[in-house]
Structures are given as structure tokens and as C-alpha cells.
Design a protein around this nucleic acid. Structure first.
Lengths: 148, 148
DNA sequence: TGGACTTGTGCAAGTAGCTTGCGTATAGTT
DNA sequence: AACTATACGCAAGCTACTTGCACAAGTCCA
């Protein structure tokens, strides 16, 4: 008795679009709302959980205290632009030889890694020379979850 | 009117001991309790906040949804053992050339990074096989860490 | 077609890990 | 000793999930 989950279907469709590289639950819900669906946060959560369990999507820990999800593909790392908040995938091969070097260096058997590079993306760096961009949603802007 | 904060003082003292590389607020509170102090969680939080504001300690986002703090020193990355949960610092120079490679590769101007390698530390790997690798500087020995 | 069964969804409450506001205690200063 | 700024405890609040429960709806089988 396999029932299709409308929410999960739409979530997957949204995540497969190349508009963005990875999503928070909030962003997914916003996108779903824009599509006329307005599911409960718990439904979005459960849909993503299901997709994660089935291996279709994976959770990316970006260290900002929120859950980020992306469609499962070959392992890669992430570039996060401090200016526009955009995130880009980074071919993992660029750090592929790290494991063996670490092993030799410290005896640590590396089985996985998570690398997040922050800085300014090519676009923003280019724009910075032309004109400043006011009102950009910076990743830091979100950080004030409770102020502090 | 500068009053010393007993909690902040003890927190800093705890964090300066090489017993462990980085602490959560919980762990700090436990250690403080072991020292006879039993401060409120909010006091620990405020003490750490103060130390962070003054640049004495830094927050390390490990992607587990909790705040980890370590004494501020030269930037480095982290090795986390999946078996014993121990964490070790990893000389950052090992990924130092990454920025320039990424720049060439994608035009991204890297200003910072956060790398967490997970796997099995030398000690745990040794215990698992009974035949540890001799002559290798063990991660524990090198980093002067003990383990939790 | 209809009843049983299974699964998806919404709603609300619960949880973890902070974070903040407020009142009181207390160390420094005058 | 009085005054005042700061540390601290307590409790409540916040974010971002996470879970439990009830109901609705889809699927299966007779």
C-alpha cells in the first residue's frame, strides 16, 4: 500500500531545481507555499526525513544551528558567500588527498569530512568593484536567532 | 569598577587545561561542578560570552547543533573520532593551499574555512586491531590530548 | 462497491540548547 | 557606611526542530 506523499514529491522537485544548492526546512516550506501548497512544518519535516531515510537527500551540517538539506549526490564540500549568502558546491576531489596526509601525520583514520569555505563569491567580488550591494541577505544577518 | 567574575575565571582555567580540546556549555558546567562551583547555566553562558567577546575563547561550529568553545589560538581544524568522540586539533597549514586553488578554480575569494574530519583516531584504531601502527606519532601524543 | 487497513497530514505539545529579563547580592569606589 | 556597577541565580522565552495523536484519504482485497 504505497501512497504518494504530495509534500515529499514537491519537496524533491523543489530540491532538484538548480536554483539553489541547499535548503533549510523553512526555505522548503516557503517554496511549497509559493506553489500553492501550505503544508504544516511537521509535514515538511517528515517529508524531508523520509527522503533522507531513503537516501534521496542528505543533511548538511553548516554550523549555523539549522538543518540544511540537499539532494544526495557524490560527496562534495561547500563554499558560502558571506556577502550574498549563496552556497556553491565544491568538487570534493580538491581535498581528496587530505585523508592520507592526515593518516600519515597523526594516525587518524579519516572516513569522512565536512568542509565549509566562507568568503566572497566571484559575482559579489566583481560587484564590489562596481557598486556596493545594499540590503543583501547575508548569512550573518540570520545568525541573530535570539539576538545576543 | 571592575569586578572579577569567578565563573569566567574558572571557565578560562578549565579551558586552558590540555585535558580536552574544546568544550560545550554543558561540559564546562560539569567541570565547574566538579570544582565545587555549581553555577547557573546562564552564568556559564554569560561567562563564555564575555570571554568570546574579549577574544579569549572562540566558538567552533561542529555541526552537531551545539555550541563548542575553545581557547583562541592560531586557526586550526578538527579531527573528531567517531568511536570515542574525542576531538583533536589539526594544523591548519595542511589545508592552507586550498584557498588559492579554489580561487583559481572558481573565482571564490576564500576568507575563512571550517574543516571537520571524522573517522577513527589512532588509539581507537589500534584497540580495534590489537596491532597498532608502531613508530607513528599518535594523534594523542602529538596533540598532547588525552581523551574524554 | 464497501470495509479494513495503511499511510499522509495537521495540530498542538514537547524537547534541546541556548538566550534574555529582572531582581538580588556583592565587590569596588567614594 | 553609602553608593553604584557588575555578577549571579531564577525563571521565562526563543528557535528549530521533533513527536504524539487524531483524522482524512488512498490502497487493497473480498
Amino acid at each position: 500500500m504505497v501512497r504518494r506523499s504530495l509534500v515529499a514529491e514537491q519537496v524533491l522537485e523543489i530540491m532538484c531545481r538548480p536554483v539553489r544548492h541547499c535548503w533549510t526546512l523553512d526555505e522548503l516550506q516557503d517554496d511549497l507555499a509559493r506553489r500553492g501548497l501550505a503544508p504544516n512544518p511537521s509535514s515538511v519535516f517528515r517529508a524531508v526525513c523520509g527522503l533522507e531515510r531513503s537516501g534521496t537527500v542528505v543533511r548538511v551540517p553548516l554550523g549555523d544551528g539549522r538543518g540544511h538539506y540537499e539532494v544526495a549526490s557524490e560527496h562534495h564540500d561547500h563554499l558560502v558567500c558571506d556577502t550574498c549568502g549563496r552556497m556553491e558546491p565544491l568538487a570534493c576531489s580538491i581535498v581528496a588527498d587530505l585523508a592520507s596526509r592526515v593518516r600519515v601525520w597523526s594516525g587518524f583514520l579519516v572516513s569522512g569530512h565536512q568542509l565549509v569555505l566562507s568568503g566572497t563569491c566571484g559575482t559579489c567580488a566583481g560587484e564590489a568593484h562596481v557598486a556596493p550591494q545594499p540590503g543583501r541577505p547575508s548569512s550573518a544577518a540570520r545568525a541573530g536567532k535570539n539576538g545576543s
